[in-house]
């Protein structure tokens, strides 16, 4: 059963007087443990598709399935619960909670899930070590570099062991060395935990790590290619 299945998905935006087709009859399947890059120029529809898969955007028509559950008709509360328990998000601009330390940010999703404190603590320390942030767990985001913040965001996304990680331009604000480290981490997590990754990017370096590249243009899928990962 595919981890993600989009069937003929359409999404239209209004930009002032204009109607813009964000997604134009998009159909896509991503298998469990897949590592897929959505590649498109700005405005091509990759972030819109990512957000639609994550239940952050309502679609106009079509179907979106996560495993065996259709999610496009779910209410706000059900979508929130789905995101909380099944999906890990990595956003472009770090998006950490500034009043929490690195460890607390990593624990945040687990805490909302209701994971007991000792389990949370052990898991967050383990993940922070895994992403190379051991010793920085008590730092707040403002005292960390961009790369360190993005690693915290990644740690938060995977700490609760989601089945699906959605990452939107995760390397956009990182230097090439840090971006490389981050992608290696994604690959390792994908390989070790069989976590499905869907990454929206137009960064060629990132695409080099993917096993499949889905190219989009003007809200449509124009190419879908399997490749040997780096």
């Amino acid at each position: 059963m595919p981890a993600v299945r989009c069937v003929d998905v359409c999404k239209t935006y209004r930009q002032g007087e204009l109607e813009v087709k964000g997604l134009d009859h998009v159909s896509l399947e991503v298998g469990e443990g897949g590592f897929v890059c959505l590649s498109a120029p700005s405005g091509g529809g990759k972030t819109t598709l990512l957000n639609a898969i994550g239940g952050l955007h309502r679609i106009d028509s079509g179907e979106i399935w996560l495993a065996d559950r259709r999610i496009d008709g779910l209410g706000k509360g059900e979508l929130a619960s789905l995101r909380l328990h099944q999906i890990g998000f990595v956003f472009q601009a770090y998006n950490l909670i500034p009043v929490l330390t690195a460890r607390e940010n990593v624990e945040f999703v687990m805490e909302v899930q209701g994971v007991p404190p000792d389990q949370r603590r052990a898991r967050s320390m383990e993940i922070l070590e895994e992403v190379g942030l051991k010793g920085l767990e008590d730092r707040r985001p403002a005292k960390m570099s961009g790369g360190q913040q993005q690693r915290v965001a990644v740690a938060r996304a995977i700490a609760s062991r989601p089945t699906l990680v959605l990452a939107d331009e995760p390397t956009a604000n990182l230097d090439s060395h840090t971006a490389e480290q981050l992608m290696e981490l994604f690959v390792e997590l994908n390989t070790r935990h069989e976590t499905t990754f869907v990454i929206a990017t137009h960064d060629q370096r990132v695409m080099g790590y993917a096993r499949r590249i889905v190219r989009m243009l003007d809200g449509r899928i124009v190419d879908d290619t399997e490749q040997e990962a780096a």
């Binding site: 952050l56 509360g77 995101r83 945040f108 909302v112 899930q113 938060r156």
Partner: peptide
């Protein structure tokens, strides 16, 4: 962000 991560509006 908190809403995106799964906090409900009630939270």
């Amino acid at each position: 962000l908190m809403l995106a991560l799964g906090m409900t509006p009630a939270h």
